[in-house]
Amino acid sequence: MNLIVLLKMVPDTVEELNVASDGKSLDSEYLRFKLNDPDEHALEEALLLKERVGGKVTVVALDAPEVDDVLFMALAKGADRAVKIPADQASLGTVATARMFATFLASGGGQITPDTLVLPGSQAIDDLEGEVAAYLGEALSLPYVGVVSSVSPVNGKVVVLKEFSGGMRGEYEVTLPAVLGIQSAEKPPRYVPVAKVRAVMKSAKIETADIAPPELAKALVVERMYKPEAAGRAQMLEGTPEDIAARIAGLLTERGII
C-alpha cells in the first residue's frame, strides 16, 4: 500500500500557555512543541499496515519548531521517506494547510495511486477551523472517515472502526484511495532509541517540497484569545505525603466510603 502520513507539531499543553500581547494569539516565546498525539498514532498505524501487507510509508510535515527531529524519528521507526514543506505552519490555518497537503499529493510529490491511504491524525488541539483530514478528503475528492482506531485491508478495500461514545465502535467499509483520520493505532506507538534516531540523522535525508501557500485568507477571524476563568477551585490539601494520605483517608471515612 502507498501510505502517506501527515504530521503536525502542536504546543505542548503540559507547559503553561500564555496569550501574546496582541490578545489574539499564543505567546510563542516559551512555547514548546510536540508531535500531535493522534498523528503519532497515525504513523504507528501506517507502520503496522506496512508490516502486515507491505508497502511504503511517506511522512509529510509543514515547517515548525523541532519538526526535523520528528521526521527523523519517523524514519528511524521505519518510514521510507520524509518530506518537509518549507512553509510556516503557524501562519496557516487548517484550511490553507489542507490545501497545501492536497497540492503536494496531487503533484508528483505524493502520487495518489489506487492503493493509497492518506493518514492524518484525527484532530489537533488547535483545530479551531476544523480538522485537516476532513478538508483534505474534500480537496482531493476522496472518501473520508475520522476517529478511526483500526484499519484492515480486505479485498482491495479497507474495513475501519470508527469510535462513537460509550466504548461503541462502528464498522465501515471504505473504497480506496481514501483519507482516514486516525484517533489511535491498534498498538501503542513504538519506541525508538535515541541512538537509532541519531544514526538515521547521519545516513538519511529529509526531502523538501516547495509548495506555495494558497491565496486564502484565514476563514475565521479571532477577536480575542484568553485564559478561561475557573468555575471553581478544589480545596487544596497540603503537607507531607504522609499527612496528605491521612487527610484523604479521613475524608473518605467522613463520607462513609471506608
Partner: peptide, 23 residues
C-alpha cells in the same frame, strides 16, 4: 461536537465556502 458528527463540519464548510467554528 461528538465522534458521531466528527468531520462533517469541515467538509460542509469547504463546499459551502463558509467558515467552520470548532469546539
Amino acid at each position: 461536537g461528538t465522534n458521531a458528527s466528527f468531520g462533517l463540519g469541515g467538509q460542509l464548510s469547504a463546499r459551502m465556502k463558509v467558515p467552520f467554528v470548532n469546539f
